[in-house]
Design a protein around this nucleic acid. Structure first.
Length: 553
RNA sequence: UGCCCGAUAGUAUAAGGGUAGUACAACUGAUUUUGGUUCAGUAUGUCUUGGUUCGAAUCCAGGUCGGGCAACCA
């Protein structure tokens, strides 16, 4: 019974390369630019790159693509390392494109010497203009005719700091008529008198992506350099550089990036949300960042599972965020401790129950008997959820209503006898009687009820803060929605319940990571939480068939 | 009207000339001391037009639609 999962197109390429002996083992890399935090789209790439190496017995480097000092920071380097580790992957080597600056500089000289690169004094506007357009061929300018000697001298002087930012660039000499705009004498090096997060002020010329990425791959003997679709046109240049530099031939393969409903997946937009305070930070639990999802309580295993399920292909896609939530629930259902918390309390008095209290036992997790059980304090006055009582219930309402019976989870069956209201007509209390012989575990009453409610004892309840999250955007396809993406921010994406009532066991649970608040959702403890003031994040709601049912009516 | 990439249920993703399958979502029912979980079942799909072939999602040609490409970003 070997249930073989079909291969994605990159796995097929790898298997083919291994089978025909092109490579003995594979080397991949994950190459983030340290200019922002990683998001779920990066997780797809991480799982792909590290997953491939794991599956086929190769290795994966973590390489920071740090060729643009003005946007890159050490803070981002650290967050990226944290996130990759948290996702459960280990890199073979921690590397930086900036490690190769000297070598890259030598590569540039090699092209100059071969007559394949020249120093251009044109302004960026002139270069853009001379480049033509997709339908109009480009034109070379007079600088393209400089001698090898002159180019060598000028390029050295660029490095020495003789020239101002933007006054000169090094360009490859390829083909101004190429239908591929990237081949029309692309810029290889530009002058930036900027402080680099690792090399400091050592350099004032920095290589462009196209003159750093493929060469870095080659230096590291990367066999399969996997990137997203927008780099397809770069492949021709990637191969050109490797061929003319005569270095190890890494190969580039492209897949479609992840897009997800109700969220944004661009570092620029995420940065904007942070800077403009639409969220509290990169790790705001509503963010599509890895750190946000971690804080919200998404297990790393569910993110990996999600990446596995969405597959890898070359067509544009928009994945339903519901699939991610499914993966989160699937994981959490197996591990979360069950606890009871009343979000919006309604007082319930059991008129035939004594003033004393008793301890009732309940499972920590019905899915996992090994998780054991814990005690619940039951007494005459309880809180139940206000929405679990209706004076005039619709059909198929299995909860509490006048004359109707329900079970209190792990306790007794009760019947609603009387509704107490204040002068304004608001319901303030519900009075019930309980059936003593219906006690959970030793029920001899023979009564069958449809509904089971969660509850806490008024006298014993502990106040906790709850942070309930909803999607950050109101539209499915945020990137393609009309207008600015910020116009679609969901103003109600965070609802704080400052005082909800939880069972006392929560006080001893602060070391626990995952909870299911019965009938409400999965929660974890937020990092803002403190001993006297517990704060929980709602990771994800439970599937709610009743909500769907009642909406239909 | 240049070049490149793509098109299979609502959303993703398989089938590599031979029964269009899987997951999520949807719907029906069963079980359930969570309207959760679990289980059983239902409905929905090959962009189009030709061609090759006994046979095409698959190979070929034309078309349509979607995306990308003219940053001293990556």
């Amino acid at each position: 019974m070997t249930e073989e999962k079909s291969l994605n197109f990159i796995e097929e390429i790898v298997e083919e390369d291994l089978k025909n002996g092109r490579y003995q083992s594979i080397v991949t890399r994950f190459p983030p630019e340290p200019n922002g935090y990683l998001h779920i789209g990066h997780a797809k790439s991480i799982c792909l790159n590290f997953g491939l190496a794991k599956k086929y017995g190769g290795r994966t480097n973590l390489r920071f693509d740090d060729t643009n000092p003005v946007t890159e920071e050490t803070e981002y380097v650290e967050s990226i390392k944290d996130d990759v580790r948290w996702l459960g992957f280990e890199w073979a080597n921690e590397l930086y494109a900036s490690d190769y600056f000297e070598q890259l500089y030598a590569f540039a000289h090699k092209l100059i010497d071969k007559g394949l690169a020249y120093v251009d004094d044109s302004t960026s506007e002139e270069i853009a203009e001379q480049k033509g357009s997709p339908t109009v061929p480009g034109k070379r300018n007079k600088y393209a005719g400089r001698s090898v000697e002159e180019n060598r001298t000028l390029f050295n002087e660029m490095r020495e700091g003789k020239y101002a930012d933007g006054s000169k660039v090094l360009r490859a000499k390829i083909d101004m008529n190429s239908p591929n705009m990237l081949m029309r004498d692309p810029i290889l090096y530009r002058i930036k008198h900027a402080h680099h997060h690792r090399t400091g002020d050592t350099w004032c010329v920095y290589p462009m992506y196209d003159f750093a990425h493929g060469q870095s791959d080659s230096i590291e003997n990367i066999t399969h350099s996997i990137c997203t679709l927008e780099f397809v046109p770069h492949r021709e240049l990637y191969d050109w550089c490797i061929a003319n530099l005569e270095i190890f031939p890494s190969h580039q393969y492209e897949f479609a990036r992840l897009n997800m409903t109700y969220t944004v997946m661009s570092k620029r937009k995420l940065l904007q949300l942070v800077n403009e305070k639409h969220v509290t930070g990169w790790d705001d639990p509503r963010m599509s960042t890895i750190s946000g999802m971690r804080r919200r309580g998404y297990p790393a295993a569910s993110i990996r599972e999600f990446c596995d399920r969405i597959g890898v292909a070359r067509r544009e896609n928009l994945i339903d965020v519901g699939l991610l939530e499914f993966c989160v629930r699937e994981q959490l259902n197996k591990v979360a401790l069950r606890r009871m918390v009343v979000f919006d309390p309604l007082k319930l008095v059991i008129t035939n129950y004594p003033e004393s209290e008793e301890v009732l036992m309940t499972d920590n997790n019905p899915e996992d008997p090994a998780a054991g059980e814990h005690g619940l304090l039951f007494s005459r006055e309880l809180y139940i959820e206000r929405e679990d009582f209706m004076e005039n219930p619709p059909k198929k309402y299995f909860r509490l209503a006048p004359g109707q019976m329900v079970r209190l989870k792990s306790a007794y069956i009760i019947r609603c006898e009387e509704v107490i209201k204040d002068a304004a007509g608001n319901i303030t209390e519900v009075h019930c009687t309980y059936v003593p012989e219906s006690r959970s575990g030793s029920d001899t009453s023979g009564i069958q009820v449809k509904g089971t409610l969660h509850w806490v004892s008024v006298k014993h309840a502990v106040a906790v803060e709850l942070r309930l999250y909803d999607r950050l955007f109101k539209v499915e396809d945020v990137a393609n929605a009309e207008g600015d993406f910020k116009d679609h921010i969901n103003a109600d994406s965070l609802q704080v319940i400052e005082k909800a009532w939880g069972e006392p066991a929560l006080l001893e649970d602060s070391h626990e990571e995952r909870f299911q608040f019965l009938r409400k959702g999965y929660f974890n403890i937020d990092k803002d939480s403190r001993p006297g003031h517990l704060i929980f994040n709602r990771t994800v709601t439970l599937k709610d068939t009743w909500a769907k049912e009642s909406k239909k009516a």
